[in-house]
Amino acid sequence: MPTDVKRRYFELLREGLMGAAAAREVGVSTSCGSLWFIDAGSMLVPDPGPISPRFLTQDDRIAIADGLHAKQPVKEIAASIGKSLSTVYREIERNRKPDGRYQPWWAHNQALLRRGRPKEEKIRSHEPLRTLVREKLTEKWSPQQVSRFLARSFGNDPAMRACPETIYRALFAGLLGFKDARLRTGRTRRKKQRRGVPQPNKIKNMTLIHQRPLEVNDRTQPGHWEGDLIIGRGQGSAIGTLVERSTRYVRLVHLPHGWKAPQVRNALIAQTADLPTQLRRTLTWDQGRELALHQDIEALTGLRIYFCDPHSPWQRGTNENTNGLLRQYFRKGTDLSVHTSHDLREVARQLNRRPRMVLGDKTPSEAMRDYLTGPLTC
């Protein structure tokens, strides 16, 4: 029987028609309709419709059943209904009948039964579980650690299991106490989430490091720089750092007027103005907002700017190493605005005249002179 006929039969039942009337309406016998009804579990749960696009609809489940009957791969079924592969796998595993068949109306009824609300919170209704969770939180365990412990210790007792989200909800609802059992962060409210919401501070038109020319990785050609800021006390001051990847040659950028995007742009342009053209190839930076005007910097310096992935400092490891050396001169937690441009030139001069094992005990200044016809001043 075509799927549309069955769909219409169950729609009529949900609208309140008796089985015989619904069967006559779709053109089948009463006994045929009765067999459909029995196969669906002999019940029909009122369907208010999906409360979120992430839930599967009755039509989605019919498409899954049709796909399985046609022996389609689950990946193709998921693509046809616009859901993820894991969602369809979970649906088939969770809502198939005891005999292993996936029957769409049975599956939909089961999903609606589980969705019924209101339900009493699991931790509220189960004293042993509540006590054990409270004890572990008092010992500064995280909800994830507590959940894994419950899964290990009570694998055969579903009543003593709780996922991290259940524990978080109980915490924020006050079911576990407000003083003893709390998160290690001390937070008593849920932190706002921004899943799927574009970050307002994301830098526009970035070119990521994965598009950077492969020749940069070889370190055989000078002119490829890495940059960053070292921040002073209270984030009130900063110094820009530039290091050339091949020679480890260092330049320091004076930022006496702050380190927002316009100040950093102007300072970088001024600092690189005297560099020969062959030393202005690329600049790799992290995704800090101080480089939001990177397109202006590219246009006025000739440097092609590439951005690292978030939280990936190893992608500009030379610069991270250099910043560590610079902390010998600019201690953490100090005010960096007290250092003049002359101070920065002197520090850069000392670093560039310090022999480096990675250069075969040459100094960065000597390595740079090997590439240039004359000495490069700081």
Rank of each mutant, 00 (worst) to 15 (best):
I77M: 09
E139N: 14
P200S: 11
R245L: 10
I62G: 03
G19W: 11
L325H: 08
F37Y: 14
V5F: 09
T322D: 03
T220P: 07
E127P: 05
D218R: 13
R354M: 12
V146P: 09
S153N: 15
L214K: 15
R90M: 05
Q263A: 05
T57A: 04
P128D: 14
L275Y: 09
T373E: 14
R194T: 07
E226I: 05
D59T: 13
V264E: 02
R124K: 15
E127G: 06
T185R: 11
V45G: 05
R248Q: 07
A170P: 04
L175S: 00
P118L: 03
S337N: 06
T322E: 06
K192W: 09
F172H: 11
R161A: 02
H294M: 07
Q315I: 09
F307T: 03
Q295M: 11
T241H: 10
R356I: 00
A21F: 06
V253T: 02
K192G: 08
Q235I: 13
T301H: 00
R184K: 15
S365M: 01
T373V: 15
L13T: 01
G67R: 07
D180Y: 10
A65S: 10
M368W: 00
R182D: 06
G19C: 15
E127D: 13
R54M: 15
R190N: 01
R327I: 11
L283V: 02
P98Y: 07
G41L: 00
N95F: 13
K136N: 08
H257T: 15
H126S: 12
P73N: 04
L150M: 00
F55L: 15
S42W: 02
L351Q: 07
L275T: 04
N352I: 04
G234F: 09
G67S: 04
I92M: 10
F10M: 04
R184V: 13
I62A: 03
Q110M: 13
R245Q: 04
N217C: 03
H69F: 13
L300F: 00
A162R: 01
R212D: 02
N205G: 08
V26R: 06
